[in-house]
């Protein structure tokens, strides 16, 4: 490989062009366009004429109780899903990393939810969550718990959604954690054993810190993923954001504004609010990560 010449640069550019074109048209252009749209106060969608620009959309969001509800629900969802999902998948990954029988089978079983269509999965969970015929209420009934209206009671809609999302995301996190665990040299465990560390201490003093880069990656990806939750809601509650908007999240709000009310300005503004929130949270995570993930 020598220095890039005009010719070699041009050749490389040709190779990059097809992908670049698609990304530009379907990703970069919409990102810029939606930023612009969020500042349209008055807009004729059919003739693409902007009568007035301003920050009306953002003011609308500031005052819209529905948007506030969506924000609140989204935060509850993220806080409900991410820590639980990380802890559960770490524990399962550690179990799968030990020498148990049928290890390969278990790995596949845990990964299946991740590669299955959300709609198909949600239909199964609608049955599981069903108030009268659902298997979940049946099991709870065995312990004397009265039937819970998982999907129709506003109080239980969000927990149902969280349970489904945790279950669905486990497989991916487990695979990442497994890879991380296998990267930890066995010698550290031997050394810790000789140094007198019990199994629990080995977990907290060796596994957890040495796995921190993986945990960091998983948490960033899951937080971003959880903020974007939409399909699960749409499928689980049959095209509704849960009973009494109890599962209305920001992306669902954007969807409703855009496709339901054709209020493109507000939808774009809400999208940018979500972007800013995720952006700030990721920056905070990067900052913490830099200080905690150091070796």
């Amino acid at each position: 490989m020598g220095r890039p010449t005009l010719k070699s640069t041009f050749t490389a550019f040709l190779y990059l062009l097809p992908a670049l074109l698609i990304i530009t048209v379907f990703t970069i252009y919409p990102i810029i366009k939606s930023l612009l749209i969020s500042f349209y106060n008055d807009y004729d969608f059919f003739q693409d004429i902007v009568y007035e620009r301003g920050i009306d959309s953002y003011i609308y969001l500031w005052n819209d109780p529905n948007f506030h509800l969506a924000l609140k629900n989204t935060f509850i969802f993220v806080i409900g899903v991410v820590p639980c999902s990380i802890i559960l998948s770490l524990l399962i990954a550690i179990l799968l990393n030990t020498n148990i029988k049928l290890r390969a089978l278990f790995r596949t079983v845990y990964f299946i939810p991740f590669v299955t269509s959300v709609v198909a999965v949600s239909i199964v969970w609608r049955w599981i969550f069903h108030t009268e015929y659902g298997v979940l209420n049946y099991f709870l009934g065995l312990f004397g718990v009265d039937p819970i209206a998982w999907l129709t009671d506003p109080k239980w809609a969000m927990p149902s959604l969280i349970i489904l999302s945790i279950w669905k995301g486990l497989g991916y996190n487990i695979i990442i954690f497994l890879a991380g665990l296998q990267n930890i040299n066995d010698q550290y465990y031997l050394a810790a054993k000789i140094d007198g560390a019990s199994a629990i201490k080995r977990f907290f003093f060796i596994t957890v810190p040495l796995l921190s880069p993986t945990t960091f990656f998983v948490s960033v990806v899951s937080i971003i993923g959880s903020f974007k939750v939409f399909d699960e809601i749409y499928a689980l509650f049959g095209g509704q954001p849960g009973p009494a908007s109890s599962a209305l999240t920001v992306v669902y709000y954007i969807f409703e504004k855009f496709y339901g009310e054709w209020n493109f300005g507000v939808a774009s503004a809400a999208a940018y609010c979500l972007f800013i929130i995720i952006f700030i949270l990721t920056l905070i995570q990067l900052y913490i990560g830099k200080r905690k993930v150091t070796y």
Binding site: N185, Q187, Y188, L190, A191, I206, P209, L210, Y295
Partner: peptide, 9 residues
């Protein structure tokens, strides 16, 4: 140990 196995963190 041969590769010392010092805890890197």
């Amino acid at each position: 140990f041969q590769n010392y196995a010092l805890y890197p963190h």
